[in-house]
Amino acid sequence: MKPLLVLLAVLAQATALQQPDGPAPRTADGKADLSGVWNKALVQNTGKQVEPLPFTPEGLKAFNDVWNHIDPTSRCILPGVPRVNTSPYPMQIVQLPDKVIFLYEYMHNFRVIYTDGRGHRKNWEPSLLGDSIGRWDGDTLVVDTVNLTDRTWLDDHGDRHSDALHVTERWRRVSANKIHYEETIDDPKFYTKPWTVGWDIPLAPKDWVVMEYACTDNNKDLYDGHLQNGPLDGSLRDGTAIGQPAPPRR
């Protein structure tokens, strides 16, 4: 993970050089403003902070079964919630009085999170991004997502979830140059108790805009049959991948 630390350090330094940090900007209605282009990094093993994960027998079976499947994102299936937040490349947030809009470079995902007090939709089919509603808890945007399919994975490590997944995201702009992000994975079918992880997301350098990253434009790895089963981070399913130390590379 050393290169990742270098990456974070260097990016933090680059960001600081471009834009001096200060208090979080505020909207006209007084809330900390999440708006901006954010240089979120790929987080390959989201559960690492809380390993070993509290698997149910069914959850552990699904985790080990990753070895028999190609990662859905390699086949250009949208990462879904919450993986859209840990996929690579920047994202833009647009905060409005009644909604917060998330625009993700990775596979051109977008989410419109209403904060106007509405509840979850009734009678909608489960989907990759699910049904999200937002509310403000002080300066923190709390996003509650249900009605997800079990067809997406949680991350590159091959952490899994069932269709009972309920995700709570907490987004707080702690300073001009930094968001603190947290996600709680509540999935009683696959985990005996909810687990929460979090990290900071730095503001992108000033001239960065969200660009094109279209997974299906020329996915030769898929078209030419190069894709293989297993998690993207190369972790094994011999018992070592569920806790510390990190599994050896294949």
């Binding site: 990662d71 996929s87 297993g230 190369g234 294949r250």
Partner: peptide, 8 residues
């Protein structure tokens, strides 16, 4: 990337 280097 979005696919497994290790496998490929």
């Amino acid at each position: 990337a979005h696919h497994s280097f290790a496998a490929e």
